[in-house]
Design a protein around this nucleic acid. Structure first.
Lengths: 169, 169
DNA sequence: GTCCCTGCAAACTATTTGCACCGGG
DNA sequence: CCCGGTGCAAATAGTTTGCAGGGAC
């Protein structure tokens, strides 16, 4: 079987290290705000929107502004630690990148929750398709949209969104 | 082999017919503007942005407004004839849908051109992954980003963008 | 004739930018 | 100290909406 649910969680320290390394290489400064936003971003470790990140950051420093969050996320994207992602609906989300192996997304169109998965067969086949067109494959993006067990009406069915709530209690 | 490069090109007449059927079913009206915009959209048959569609439509009727294009495209999306798509860069694109079988995208990150492909093995494997999480799969989105032969530096290499130019001459 | 549709402009939302002041190196 | 960073507010880009007049059925 070629599926793996989730790769190892990278530790925040190391990510902050990479971020600081990038900043000093580019002669940019580490500031309280940047560190705070990056911390919160790495800690969320999943999919987070600008709005959510701002809220989390303001919990510790209420004077953080939208612009700073945008600017910091742009920096994180430049050094490959964050990736912008726009799912079907409106909201632009960001996720950590570079740290973990590649993963794809499975999204419930009812409860909106996003799961991650990896499947080597699909990856190999993608490689083969690209080659058949004479392309070399650099990256890809795969999103599966469907209904989670709960949304399908299976009684007692598992719903990723409720799992999530349990975790955050 | 399970790849198919491109499904049959649907004819515009039939698409317009489907559109009109949807309109009358919903007791909505066929108007000059809607027909013009839908015609241009179907004729483009590939990936087109609101902006481009407006420009094309204004070539024949300069008084067409943005709002009408947005509203018409929303109608086309409702009846499954158009699908919104946001590739990595900023621009929101629309493409014809419903006409042909499902297809995925292969995009050259150098020349930006978009090819379409289908691969049944990948589709089946996606189905399997969704089931393994207890999900029922409704739709998906797969984009492969890479370098076309020309961009890879293969001399005399084939470049989708040049093929395109040849066609439009 | 009745509503729906259109074009325009104003409203909104998400994101970026200009600028005076602040603070890290 | 210097120059980049921050916060605010204003600007911008993309999309939606309200409304008065026009057109399909």
């Amino acid at each position: 079987m070629h599926d793996r649910r989730q790769s190892a969680v990278p530790d925040i320290e190391s990510l902050m290290g990479q971020f600081h390394a990038y900043l000093s290489k580019k002669q940019l400064k580490s500031t309280r705000q940047r560190d705070l936003i990056a911390q919160k971003f790495f800690a969320a470790h999943g999919h987070i929107s600008i709005e959510e990140l701002l809220t989390l950051s303001r919990a510790e420093n209420p004077r953080i502004g939208y612009a700073t969050v945008y600017r910091t996320l742009k920096l994180l994207a430049e050094c490959g630690l964050a990736a912008q992602r726009r799912f079907g609906d409106g909201q632009t989300m960001y996720e950590t990148a570079g740290d973990t192996e590649h993963h794809d997304h499975l999204i419930c169109i009812e409860c909106q929750h996003v799961l991650e998965f990896q499947n080597d067969d699909i990856e190999h086949e993608q490689e083969r398709v690209a080659r058949s067109f004479g392309f070399s494959l650099v990256r890809h993006r795969l999103e599966l949209y469907g209904l989670c067990p709960r949304a399908r009406g299976i009684k007692g069915g598992w719903c990723p969104n409720e799992e999530q709530r349990k975790l955050s209690d």
